[in-house]
């Protein structure tokens, strides 16, 4: 267990960097999480992160890669819902990394 320091608050994360308390998430927290991964969040990232949070609110689970691609295609169109685009944004591991930055639990079927 380690912790992040965001705007004077302490936010616990697990050994892989996922939030322990999903309710701790904010855009500021996401920026700090991204920084730890060497990523600067831009509009295209945010679009996917917010989409993931909607996915979680609706289905109560974190998507594996294929469902993430399908859902993104459904919601944002095929230009964005494809593995090329998502891999480019999230360093080749979109399901895992985007879930982490969106404050979701680690996808359980992420192999």
């Amino acid at each position: 267990m380690s912790e992040l320091h965001v705007d004077g608050r302490t936010v616990p994360v697990d050994e892989e960097g996922f939030l322990v308390e999903l309710s701790d998430w904010s855009e500021a927290v996401a920026c700090v999480l991204a920084e730890r991964e060497g990523l600067v969040l831009e509009a295209e990232h945010w679009e996917v992160l917010h989409l993931l949070r909607r996915f979680y609110a609706e289905f109560q689970l974190s998507p594996a890669t294929r469902p993430l691609i399908r859902y993104t295609a459904q919601q944002l169109g095929p230009d964005k819902g494809n593995s090329l685009h998502l891999n480019r944004l999230f360093k080749g591991t979109p399901a895992k990394l985007a879930a982490k930055l969106a404050g979701l639990p680690k996808p359980s079927n992420c192999l």
């Binding site: 609706e58 289905f59 109560q60 689970l61 998507p63 294929r66 469902p67 399908r70």
Partner: peptide, 15 residues
């Protein structure tokens, strides 16, 4: 309990 029925709604996205 966690909401299994919400998870079931995602089945089609999971193929």
């Amino acid at each position: 309990q966690k909401d299994l029925t919400a998870n079931l709604q995602a089945l089609q996205l999971f193929g």
